[in-house]
Amino acid sequence: MDVGGAAYNELFDIFWGWSIVVGIIVFGWQLHHSFFYRSKDGEVPNVDALKVGEFPRHNDNLQLELTWIILPTLLILYLTFISLGPASDVWADPADVGVEGEDYFEIGMTGQQWFWDFDCRELSTDLCTTGVDEETGLTKLIVKKDVVYRFNLTSEDVIHAPFLVQWGAKEDAVPGLYTSMWVTPDMTGEFFIDCAEFCGDDHSYMTAILEVHV
């Protein structure tokens, strides 16, 4: 099963590609030098005439140093640039997304030691239903596929963080603060909501179920 969501997967592939390029350059270079410049049998030539108590002759080359300042900077500017677009989706300003109740729908989600509480507000049962999963006894949220949801998060006690693995969505639920998490479920089925911010004894079991229907 694919995890992480579309934006993550797209960025990950690009970053991963560049990681391999950087890795090949660095490790290739290192591997070559480690063997090519090793001292042959017992011979220990003192290349730069190092001597105790003498600051050695500078071993500089401005052009080379500038090269490996400028090239990585370009790569980083590029990676920063491609990261900017998806980032603004993660925290979309509601006004940019459209009208609440038409273009997107709000669901309240409250963390408590140690369960998740959902609040469908005035949404129709087709868009949002809450319940309890019979098999596991976990709280459950049932939503519709391909609808833009804005989860309004808060906490009753300590900090929690819902983690929807399939869409790579995560945001802290902080007591005394409202934060938001945008999710557009694009798969149907039953999924797992985990808690990603340490919240005390039963942190590992603070789970809930998200069911997505067509």
Binding site: A7, Y8, F12, P86, V90
Partner: peptide, 26 residues
């Protein structure tokens, strides 16, 4: 040099926010 470079490369993934939301706390 090997391990620190690998750690440095994996560190580059975090600041990218759309990836951070998935990788944070994992």
């Amino acid at each position: 040099l090997v391990t620190f470079t690998l750690g440095g490369i994996s560190g580059m993934f975090f600041p990218s926010i759309a990836m951070n939301t998935h990788m944070h706390e994992t």
